[in-house]
Design a protein around this nucleic acid. Sequence first.
DNA 1: AATGAATGAGAATTCATTCAT
DNA 2: CATGAATGAATTCTCATTCAT
Lengths: 207, 207, 207, 207
Amino acid sequence: MRKIKTKIKNPDLVEKRRNQISQAALALFREKGFHATSMRTICQKAKVNLGSFYDYFGSKEDILVHLYKEIMNRKLHWAPADGKPADFKDIEDLLRLSMSNAWSRDNNAIQLLYQETTSLDKKTRKEVFQIESNFVKWVAEKFREGLSLPSVSTELELAANMLVYVNAFIPLRGWNMSHIKQEEILDFAVGMFMTILKALSQREAIR
Amino acid sequence: MRKIKTKIKNPDLVEKRRNQISQAALALFREKGFHATSMRTICQKAKVNLGSFYDYFGSKEDILVHLYKEIMNRKLHWAPADGKPADFKDIEDLLRLSMSNAWSRDNNAIQLLYQETTSLDKKTRKEVFQIESNFVKWVAEKFREGLSLPSVSTELELAANMLVYVNAFIPLRGWNMSHIKQEEILDFAVGMFMTILKALSQREAIR
Amino acid sequence: MRKIKTKIKNPDLVEKRRNQISQAALALFREKGFHATSMRTICQKAKVNLGSFYDYFGSKEDILVHLYKEIMNRKLHWAPADGKPADFKDIEDLLRLSMSNAWSRDNNAIQLLYQETTSLDKKTRKEVFQIESNFVKWVAEKFREGLSLPSVSTELELAANMLVYVNAFIPLRGWNMSHIKQEEILDFAVGMFMTILKALSQREAIR
Amino acid sequence: MRKIKTKIKNPDLVEKRRNQISQAALALFREKGFHATSMRTICQKAKVNLGSFYDYFGSKEDILVHLYKEIMNRKLHWAPADGKPADFKDIEDLLRLSMSNAWSRDNNAIQLLYQETTSLDKKTRKEVFQIESNFVKWVAEKFREGLSLPSVSTELELAANMLVYVNAFIPLRGWNMSHIKQEEILDFAVGMFMTILKALSQREAIR
DNA sequence: AATGAATGAGAATTCATTCAT
DNA sequence: CATGAATGAATTCTCATTCAT
């Protein structure tokens, strides 16, 4: 993923300031959208000088890139990425882990990811899509393993896609379900996926 | 939903021009986002004079409002709203109908609905949410009827929510599944929901 | 030469506003230089709205392009360019005409031309140089005709170059000669060139 | 000429750093102009810390002042200035010396002098003009001596002016004559001035 | 009802300069 | 004496909207 330019030499400071800024920006972007949020407002909220901003980022768009990188990194907490497999017992555990992960913590950041796709330049957008795509493949593979199937069928791939979708959009649509407990939604979703996967597994077995 | 102001007296002309403009805008909004699209560009594409625009709409935001109204109206083709119930045999038919509807036709408009939520002012946004919410309730009720259940359980409501989600987001995320046929995805999704609903139905029966 | 973009449809108005703006800019550029002059200042002086400026020009640099075009057009009053040869009896007449032309009228504009070469983007700069170069060739040819020589020697070309130089820079360096009458300087310069050309002519004759 | 302030006590270091910086700046100014060149770029090229710059110069403009001083000093290699007369046999020698001097060595610096006049504040600009003016007078006096004339006529002064002009601008306009050898141009220019001066001399003799 | 020009607030970004260590 | 981060004013340009005809 594209590297963000900086004029600052101390890498710890760069990290600190970038987070400081991007966290402030995240809240504002979520609320008003990327374009409707001005650099002035962001810097005021982040308590960073407007001029200094450009010492840490190359442009406004770079904030999005930074946020996306962060999201991707955290998502990889339950994905292998650099080889480190996440720790889970079985498929149900995987499902529960991934969901509670996506739904609780990065709420805002993930929502943003899907809100502001159009605000990214084409190249960066493509990269984001690619990472997602790889991730879906990995999930499908986990499903295959967990169900002891010989290969990844189209339907398994679709199920993997669906999981990633649900993880992405449940937080986005929290609005409609505010009267239902988070816990209950989680249970329902896990149950739903288990039902689907079992059904798939049986169908495959018959063939 | 808030009425859009106009200075023009001929209502047919108003309708015609508004559609002309909002269709041009829709394509542009989807591609570049609401804020990144200028009024100039919209009017050029719509072949409407930039000055005339403000005879038919009160502001740029009004285009969104107009589009949302339209979307809602079409959604109600398979929902009752003004009393006209859509025509379907059973739940499977309902699922298939709703999905092929959402996935094929309003692709762009629905995607926009979820992209540009933040570009609406709070009041309008709330109205959109409310309509959605009512719609979910209606779907849940249809599920209850189709499954011959005595009441709408939380899980049924969640399932209804999930359907609306999936309908909204499948088109948004078409990107990851471009190698799979639309038909196959539809079959999978319908099958998935049937599995879930049947499982729910059985569980309820046991109680 | 590159066309300047405009959003205005009435071409007379475009011409009028562009001149209005570029004349104000010319004075300021000459005084403080291109970069040190802000768009705000230019528009204030030109009594044009800062926003409107961009209806008539595409960018700040376009003002320079416009000015250069104007200069070139006037220079061609005594050059053929599009076929119309300027009217003069003999070489001495040509010299006097060209000089009084360059020294009196376009004073400011010509000075600017040589001051702000670096402020033009490469492509435009190249075009300006090319026009100059062609012009020098035309002058050399006139010299050849006037002296009834068979061909343009290197020295004749150098003399032509020198004339164009002198015409360009006498106004630029008026400062050092402010105590001498314009008339006297003109006489001296014409005499100087006549002396040079005659000497050249004789030398060629001997060969 | 105005003294440039410094906070540094070691004068050798000051001299060294100032040259280091101004040489880097010279190249950049010539290429992009004074205002379009940023302090950051200059200091990067000069390999001097951006903060340190202000220990050796008071401001960006001071670089220009420093460069102008240097130019003036070198020009005085063939002028008396601090009393040291340059060494030449006759007028032709003087002409050739001055030209090859101006055309070869300080190419960049002299061009800059005339490019960036407007970037100097008024006071400094006036000083530069004054030095030039004195220099022209000195050249005129040398002409008078060489031609054994009783006094400096207006025409002689104009000829001196012309020499200084030509020396200043030949390098600036090298562009149009790139196909002709430097040597040939030099010969032509020397010949040209000799012709003019001889003609002047004869005319004066007749009076 | 349509046209096209005008308006002015606000956007992102750059830059010379200063300051603390 | 050097370093590198901070400052904030200024700059070019865009845009939704209004106005006069």
